[in-house]
Design a protein around this nucleic acid. Structure first.
Lengths: 142, 142
DNA sequence: TCAATACTTTAGAATTAATATAATGTATTA
DNA sequence: TAATACATTATATTAATTCTAAAGTATTGA
């Protein structure tokens, strides 16, 4: 099974036809050595730089949202003017470097289980994810 | 020291002159029996309902942001099309009810300390806050 | 107290991310 | 391969937020 076949499979499972544009989007998203974080605008730029295929914003939005719905991408709960997405769909957390405006993954195994001693009647927890905000540690200032 | 004096103090400490509009905003935000979550639009509506003072969106935005900068309000890191704010500025967490689109506070004492077994060189953690997404617990479906 | 000054308020305009639209194009199907 | 259904795109729209500039108000110092 080639990479492209995998992309086609992902697209079909997301209810999307495999088109030139969508396969290109998959190449950028799922062929990366590492997982990464991105905004829609950034994704469009990467595609423009890597290929001579033109992809409209609307297509990228639609495809990204279909992948999120299917669980192939995740939205990062960061209160920002634009949405951030993550190719790492495992249950994990984030550092957010407030000085560099950068997100860094924290894998679940790097965190002890979070124990919430409180419940809401009739409700169950579906997921727990945190953002740890980090800043420069200038010890000299202490 | 009257309530209004406290509002004037908060405003001055935030670098703002105490005006009619801003004192009204303070009354809504800081006179509540309980802490609460709000969007800018909701805050404008509450003010309209409680007083015959007219306050423009711009004034509310400016004042809320000055209070956040000073630490009198907090922004809730929820990835939504509008920003959510919190009058509870203690270190705490949230349930987010995905069905009702509602936030519920989780006090720090209701959560065991979060232990992150990983550090970023030269950086220190400033805060750790999580969102626990909750949904209906239909046990019959199991 | 009272002008001069500096900051505020406001309506409306501008900006920006995100979504909708509808005409043209392409994958699928039988 | 033709008919159909779905995609793509440029453009328009929407909605939250920010900006602007004119008119208003708090502050300051004489």
């Amino acid at each position: 099974m080639t990479y492209v076949d995998q992309y086609i499979d992902k697209l079909r499972k997301s209810g999307l036809r495999p088109t030139k544009q969508r396969i290109k989007i998959c190449e950028v998203l799922f062929n990366a050595e590492k997982t990464f974080h991105f905004t829609i605008k950034e994704l469009v730029k990467i595609i423009e730089n890597q290929a001579n295929i033109k992809v409209s914003l609307a297509t990228v939005y639609n495809t990204v949202h279909a992948f999120i719905k299917k669980g192939y991408l995740k939205e990062i709960p960061l209160n920002a003017s634009q949405s951030y997405y993550d190719t790492n769909v495992t249950h994990h957390h984030h550092f957010f470097d407030e000085e560099e405006n950068k997100l860094i993954d924290i894998n679940q195994e790097d965190v002890d289980d979070i124990n919430i001693k409180r419940t809401i009647p009739g409700k169950k927890i579906r997921s727990v994810e945190f953002i740890a905000k980090i800043v420069s540690d200038n010890q000299s200032q202490k």
